[in-house]
Design a protein around this nucleic acid. Structure first.
Lengths: 143, 143
DNA sequence: CGTACATCCTCCAGCGACTATAGGAGCAAG
DNA sequence: CTTGCTCCTATAGTCGCTGGAGGATGTACG
């Protein structure tokens, strides 16, 4: 009887795919767990928590390196959380910028689509705007 | 006297990096231009236009394969622009979804940052929310 | 106990859209 | 003629996974 949790179970419980769990181990985001005699990885509840933390952080758009820092912070509860705050704030700034950029994008796409008279390419507003950036109202950054 | 435009010039004129211009040639997005005796690529005004079209399309978030289609359409002005319209509309739907997702994200990040009392990690709202997805108000999809 | 089947293992290649590096060769100005 | 910029090819790396091949292990059932 083995008390360890199999990789498939932690995957299900955490919402991180099996292959991705192994990938995280490979890049050192998750410690290599003990193995069964047959060589299978055996996890515990802590690992599920850690993976859930990672998945949620990824959903919030944090990069792996940032998550590495956040995980280190989580491991030292007595430390100041200034770093976590800084990382989250930086991400918030990014997200706001992205929303602004995408909103400009949306406006331009709508202009393109609305302007299209569904005729020939010759007079297509979509192609026209793509060809001539000068027809853009907004200056777009990376979207 | 050589009438061709050097890669550096088309790069500047179109806003596409030199390495990226060569990359586009490699993947067949841009035709291989004639060369000088010394083996250097020589472009013309049409190429600058094409690259500008590509860059603008990329800024609008279109994928390379979609741009391939859009470029083909541009080359045949007598055709219907229904395809261009479809591609642009699909992109618009994507952009709208992304904005919605990022807005939810923004709300959650703000909740994290606002809740942080700048004390120890132990009681840090940022770490707390990352660890426990149940504390999220919104269900986030890929952001 | 045998066997079928699910799950797991490692290794390696690929995705998209570039970007960067090494190690040269071309070319124009001073 | 030499300096220094631009250009060339070829290859490997980026990020965060994802997929497949080909085999081993674990388990449930008869």
């Amino acid at each position: 009887m083995n008390h360890g949790i199999a990789i498939g179970k932690v995957s299900q419980a955490s919402g991180v795919k099996v292959t991705t769990v192994r990938f995280y181990e490979q890049i050192g985001l998750l410690a290599a767990p003990p193995r069964t005699d047959g060589g299978r990885r055996t996890y515990d509840r802590k690992d599920i928590e850690r993976l859930t933390f990672i998945r949620h952080s990824r959903e919030l758009g944090f990069e792996i390196d940032q998550i590495r820092t956040l995980l280190e912070l989580q491991d030292r509860p007595d430390q100041s959380c200034a770093d976590a705050d800084t990382i989250a704030k930086a991400r918030l700034v990014e997200v706001k910028a992205k929303i602004a950029s995408l909103t400009a994008l949306q406006a331009e796409l709508e202009r393109m689509v609305d302007g299209c008279s569904h005729g020939r390419v010759e007079s297509c507003r979509v192609i026209e705007i793509l060809a001539d950036h000068g027809k853009c109202k907004h200056h777009l950054h990376d979207a």
